[in-house]
Nucleic acid binder design. Structure first.
Lengths: 212, 212, 212, 212
DNA sequence: GATGAATGAGCGTTCATTCAT
DNA sequence: TATGAATGAACGCTCATTCAT
């Protein structure tokens, strides 16, 4: 969970040729599709290779292992999602508008990149470090939470928002967006935009200062 | 995600001897520990058997397969959690109090049964039906969401709460509780009760009718 | 293959109580049903016990192991089949009639005890001694072949039959009967009696002296 | 049972490299040896791999599963046997000669490929489809029986053979050949060619029109 | 760069057998 | 006698990884 916004990739791609980048992108795309379809556990390198139309060894050639592929996927999608959402928020100043736009822009991204978000959730829930601890999760989202906190703190500073625990708000804000995605996946007939607007309303209502 | 409250187990245990129940409980307990520690993917029957101090075949003897064990775990924990939370809510009538209590009782349960909740999350994220579709998730939580909706609808009917989309509120309410758990796991030094109170405040603030 | 006629059981049942015999018979009957239905490989002691409506341990109590159960089945069915066929042949003297009757009586028995014959075939094809060599087969049918040879030799002695290799005749005679069963199992709509008569005709025609 | 003559492989091997074919052939050869020696039930992939001097996973790499390996074995041996026997029968026109040659050519093949025929018998007796029904057997031999019937019908049409049920004759003809193999395996000192000639004599005698 | 072949460990499951009650 | 519980070995199979070509 907690996938959207502003995380800087750890491994800046370096010294990659154009072909190299294209191959990696192709493999990432295939992996995303497979994970979204069959889940993390059954997304074997063999299945990903078949989907990409390449041999299994190619993946090992371009990635040091399955874990690096997964990390690359996360960073790729993260960057893409952040770019989309930040793009929508640029220029806005009103904290209320920023809160609303973060939610609705996330919904937009979900509809455009449904399988990407699904894959991201699978990787978050499953990828583990060598020591067995989860690779991603709440403990790797502090930067994201801090950004969301700044958004709400700005509203508090401006007097639009009342006082509340901004960390709890940030965690819940992000979680509610992830749940929106999950609920939409389970109920595809859902009007996603209406859900997003309702969700944004809830956040605004929770944050707003009581009018007198 | 979305684990708390009121789901009736599908398979009422029948005709089990005392010993049989004890063994199943022992295996369930060992499985919960292992899943919570190393994650779903590495929670093999072998690892569970070692933890339980029994031979691998015993698990197969008492459960028809790994899936039945997982389903049993889910139903066991669900029942336990629901009993705790519903117990705390009994006798309350005020919708506002019910909302607050649901959140704080969930936090209580988390502290008492940390590994249970962690295991539940792993199983939810990973267990799949034979056809590859997720076994649990948003699509199996309708009953829970309906119960939460009734809670908020009662507040709307009484005039305490304003009008809003109760389904979105229910999904977000539950998700925020799950995120509280996740955040606590990642930050064990967190004051869980304070978080729960802040979270409940957010829900109440989001739902309350503007005083004039 | 080669199941019919005159094999003396190796283990004369001794000192068994009535109840003991009944239990063993019950287990044998259940085992025969299971083997006939699902084949030797899937006829586990567990499946046999369920079919018999008893606990798995009972089989181990009454039989020293799976092998002894299988041997008991073979001897039981062999004895039954031999009794039926020999009964039909008693009193006949003409070699031609004996040949015909052996075939048709075998067909009768097959129709009466279809699953028994099927189970026998499965055990013959699969049961192995501890050293890995087949427990039953051509090498355990010498007595049967000798009996069939005597039948044909009597015809040669009487002048009804021409000279031919009676061992080849005996092996083929018995094999043809077994194939009749297999063909009937695969084509249940077959007129089994007509097949038996045609088969007996072939044997008689093969053996008869050319009427100048 | 019923293994010889004219069954077209279902899966024409396609797009296999030379190495791929060689490996598959090597695995097939090892599997044949193991099955012939220890029987179907104990012919595990592990045993086959050890015999082939390769790792267990290689078999899974080249065959989709044990069943595909078994089917490949059957088709390989069937094709080989049919080629040998049909080769011997080519150019012959006399029905009597065809009958004799079919039997003696089968005997030749048995001596050349003893373990192949033994393995084939084991697979026939044991391999089951997913639904539990036998994969091979009388019900899959109709094409073979039809070919043998045509051979005898030609003799009836030419007046060499009398009238009899050609289907019964075909089933018995084939079964007698299989029994010849079984008897030879049990009595290795047997003069196989003499047996084959005697068996062919029986068939010819059974089929021939009485002179005069 | 890319491939297919091969490995070996680990998986869930089945099963004949043993044994205390 | 009869039982259910437990064992441990073996099974077919999957998979990330390695490597020669």
């Amino acid at each position: 969970m907690c996938y959207f916004l502003t995380v800087r990739p750890e491994n800046e791609p370096k010294g990659q040729t154009f072909i190299e980048k294209a191959r990696r992108a192709q493999i990432v795309a295939a992996a995303v599709d497979v994970i979204a379809e069959v889940g993390y556990a059954k997304a074997s390198l063999a299945a990903i290779a078949v989907r990409a139309g390449i041999s299994k060894g190619v993946i090992s050639y371009h990635f040091s292992g399955k874990d690096e592929l997964m990390v690359t996927i996360v960073e790729t999608i993260y960057g893409e999602a952040a770019a989309h959402i930040v793009g929508r928020m640029e220029g806005l100043e009103s904290p209320t508008e920023l809160v609303r736009t973060h939610v609705t822009a996330a919904a937009e991204y979900m509809r455009e990149r449904r399988s990407h978000v699904a894959a991201l959730g699978q990787i978050f829930a499953n990828l583990r470090a060598a020591d067995g601890s989860p690779r991603y999760g709440m403990h790797t989202s502090d930067e994201l939470f801090a950004a969301l906190e700044r958004m709400y703190q700005a509203g508090q500073a401006s007097g639009e928002f009342r006082e509340f625990d901004t960390r709890v708000m940030a965690v819940t804000h992000q979680g509610g967006i992830d749940d929106m995605f999950g609920y939409w996946m389970a109920h595809p007939e859902l009007d996603l935009d209406a859900y997003a607007r309702s969700l944004a309303d809830l956040y605004v209502a929770a944050a707003r200062k009581e009018s007198r």
